[in-house]
């Protein structure tokens, strides 16, 4: 059976991804999470739910933590996107990444990229957050392994490690 499916309308998308400008033709309906995973090959961005429920896909859009699974890629025109991969500088994990590793803020690791990205957004704005501020900032990120205790500890440790 042949189908007469219309080709999706595509647009040239220019954005800054983990510090580098790039251009890709993307469908107007394409979600940011699919663009990042399938086109840019950044599979650190995870999908844990059917849309906006779990926070595993969090990325920074102009420094703001946003769920990539309910963001259209074309809405990111001209903007700066940072993913978990982009937080590594010259092969060195960021202080949050180190703290999550050393303090066991990660167990299975699936929620971890989203957790770290959301924490990064917090620490950039609030370098010395209270526990309550940490809780508020991570309230959209579900972890099923840790009970969050060591996640809070990791964020606190990273904040204290700040220069």
């Amino acid at each position: 059976m042949l189908t007469d499916r219309p080709e999706p309308r595509k647009r040239l998308l220019r954005l800054r991804l983990n510090g580098r400008w790039r251009e890709d033709a993307v469908a107007e309906s394409e979600l940011l999470v699919d663009y990042l995973r399938d086109v840019a090959r950044l599979t650190g961005v995870k999908t844990g739910c059917d849309g906006g429920e779990c926070g595993a896909c969090a990325v920074l859009i102009d420094g703001e933590a946003m769920p990539a699974c309910i963001t259209l890629a074309v809405r990111c025109e001209g903007r700066s996107i940072e993913t978990i991969e982009g937080l590594v500088e010259q092969g060195r994990p960021s202080r949050l990444q180190r703290a999550f590793h050393e303090k066991l803020g990660t167990q299975c690791g699936f929620c971890t990229p989203g957790m770290i990205v959301a924490s990064e957004a917090l620490l950039r704005k609030t370098p010395r957050p209270s526990d309550q501020e940490i809780r508020a900032a991570l309230s959209g990120n579900i972890c099923r392994c840790t009970g969050y205790v060591k996640i809070i500890e990791s964020v606190r440790t990273a904040a204290e490690a700040a220069p």
């Binding site: 599979t43 991969e85 590793h101 990660t106």
Partner: peptide, 21 residues
């Protein structure tokens, strides 16, 4: 008092490949 997971760095950097990755 304990050692971090031997595969922890892969998890915190987004390098870890899960089935869908």
């Amino acid at each position: 008092p304990g050692v971090p997971l031997i595969d922890g760095i892969d998890k915190v950097t987004g390098r870890a490949r899960y089935t869908a990755d």
